[in-house]
Nucleic acid binder design. Structure first.
Lengths: 162, 162
DNA sequence: GTTGAAATGCAAGTTTGTTTCGTTTGGAAC
DNA sequence: GTTCCAAACGAAACAAACTTGCATTTCAAC
């Protein structure tokens, strides 16, 4: 590792492991990447401080905790005035059932990923988030029949950046 | 905790913590939920065995590892014959840049979440995944301007202790 | 060749995770 | 009301992992 804010091959190899299982002992990581455990620990700490590693979390099966339904929603707004967009962002982000929210270009303005227990819950949510929101022009719903691949893993193979 | 396959308020409180930070010491979790460390450890282990906790992972900032662009893609297929759908699922899931893939109802058949380094990379990916795939009728692209809320946290709804 | 910043490995020290074991709790049957 | 049993608990011992200090190595710049 040369200068302070770049990621070298060791860092990326460590990230690849941690993105799959961050309970892997540092000793095992060290063996996998040919580094000592302290070296691994220092690199992990540095990447956490740099914000490369944003969080360490447990991934929970939604169905096992009573949220078997995953839904995508495309939301189109009436006005894209900055303050209204910011209000929408805050409003969506504050809802626990809204797992992900992106502000996007294209034929929609927002895309939401929502998890709910029942379609009745979803309907109640649409009422609260969309029908009672004057700035929502329309929205389209896509119900997930199969969560084919779900994760937040990012390829770390080649490039480094930021 | 009564019978073995249900989640009680303690389990849910533990899950809520682990979904935010799974490096929280079990002693600290125990204090937060009014349980001893061994009790916390046993519950975590049980939930991992039950599949409630699917994985423990580090969340990486895509921009910091050279994937600053997040894109949503709605994919519509020509034929929904089971074998073709399965082939599409496998094909999409195998691509590292495809972070999430859902098979959905509605005006599209698949929704993908993709992370790439550049739009040129995305164009190359569309060529490979869509234009060269005879079963893809059309697709629509939504480029994320703001990752307002990104996570896989599921509401667990209960609390214990204090 | 020398210098100095940065990273490394080793080994000690500290924290955390895990197991053991005896006790308590909550039902069900009597 | 008592007994019995199984499940879960807490305290403490134990094992494993993380963290720190330090001497050494590496490598680029001089």
């Amino acid at each position: 590792m040369s200068v302070s804010s770049e990621l070298d091959a060791f860092d990326r190899a460590i990230l690849a492991i941690l993105q799959k299982d961050n309970s892997t002992p540092q000793r095992a990581i060290g063996e996998a990447v040919n580094l000592s455990a302290p070296a691994v620990q220092r690199r992990i700490k540095r990447m956490e401080e740099m914000g490369v590693i944003r969080a360490n979390v447990a991934l929970v099966d939604p169905a096992k905790v009573g949220h078997p339904i995953t839904i995508f929603v495309e939301v189109e707004v009436e006005s894209e005035r900055a303050e209204l967009i910011d209000a929408a962002k805050c409003g969506f982000a504050a809802v626990p059932e809204v797992q992900q929210c992106y502000y996007v270009t294209g034929e929609a303005d927002f895309i939401l990923v929502v998890t709910v227990a029942t379609m009745a819950d979803y309907e109640a949510l649409t009422r609260r988030l969309f029908f009672e929101n004057n700035n929502v022009k329309r929205f389209r719903t896509f119900v997930a029949m199969d969560r084919v691949k779900v994760g937040l893993e990012v390829p770390v193979g080649e490039r480094a950046g930021g």
